[in-house]
């Protein structure tokens, strides 16, 4: 009897122990599974939301670029020839004035003003959308940009791959704008005397751009929160093309690394 009682008690005792263990493991498993499932769901929603925001950003940037390209084309194709025609007409007026032995100073001044306007219009048009980007691609455009900026105060060295395979227009344009903004920041804020841009392309056409300078540097902590308009534009353009950008900076040594998929 005592043995039967002992066995029954042992069975009840073991059953109780197992039940409590199962309960404990059940709670832990529930927390693990529930937490993972809900968070995975939340992450999926967040990912979709980010993708949607990126698409919206891309669409906004694309429409801005389209608008800029249209204005640049209008300036170049409509206003440019019109100004040239005005210059021609002014030249004819000047000749007539000279033939009549009249004072041509005003005509000369007008021609000079027209020349300046033509140069300015061309500059604005190129800045809005550089034709070299459309025809020659990113590497030549950045080289062109560096040549124009190079001066006694700031020396910019540019290295590009021997053979550059073109990537999508959207990515090239975004990288060009980012490069321009970075150079603009170097000129305006860094007090640098030397800068370097290096463009490298891997076999899969992915692009790496390194922009460095010897300026005073800047604080790279919490850059997303503290970003000004220019930096925000850089970050949003890079995000729109699913690229990566890294800022490293210390006094005398700043390096910005941009990586973009080539496809």
């Amino acid at each position: 009897m005592a043995d039967t009682g002992g066995i029954n008690f042992l069975a009840a005792f073991m059953l109780g122990t197992v039940a409590l263990l199962v309960m404990a493991i059940g709670i832990i498993s529930f927390v693990l599974v529930y937490q993972r499932r809900v968070i995975t769901h939340q992450l999926e929603i967040q990912k979709k939301d980010e993708e949607m925001q990126r698409e919206m950003l891309r669409a906004t940037i694309q429409s801005q670029e389209e608008e800029q390209r249209r204005i640049a084309r209008d300036l170049h194709d409509d206003l440019g020839p019109m100004l040239s025609a005005i210059k021609l007409k002014t030249g004819q007026i000047k000749k007539k004035l000279e033939a009549s032995n009249m004072n041509v100073a005003d005509a000369d001044e007008s021609q000079e003003m027209i020349d300046t306007t033509i140069t300015q219009v061309r500059g604005i048009s190129h800045r809005l959308f550089p034709p070299v980007l459309e025809y020659n691609g990113l590497a030549d455009t950045i080289e062109d940009m560096c040549d124009k900026i190079n001066s006694d105060k700031l020396n910019i060295a540019f290295t590009k791959p021997e053979e550059y395979n073109r990537i999508s227009n959207e990515k090239e344009l975004a990288l060009y704008r980012v490069g321009m903004e970075l150079l603009n920041n170097i000129i305006r804020h860094s007090q640098a005397t030397q800068a370097a841009i290096s463009l490298t392309q891997k076999n899969n056409n992915s692009i790496e751009i390194l922009v460095s300078d010897n300026g005073k540097g800047f604080d790279t902590k919490n850059i997303n929160e503290k970003a000004g308009l220019g930096l925000k534009s850089i970050l949003s353009r890079i995000a729109a093309i699913k690229g990566h950008i890294k800022f490293e900076s210390s006094p005398g040594n700043t390096l910005v690394t941009i990586n973009v998929d080539g496809n």
């Binding site: 009682g5 008690f9 042992l10 005792f13 122990t17 409590l20 493991i25």
Partner: peptide, 23 residues
């Protein structure tokens, strides 16, 4: 799991001690 199972074990220890020492 440790403290869950301990509730049962500590509640039964005296009973086991007097009635089923071998357990």
């Amino acid at each position: 799991p440790f403290y869950s199972v301990s509730i049962l074990h500590y509640s039964l220890i005296n009973y086991l001690f007097y009635h089923y020492t071998h357990l």
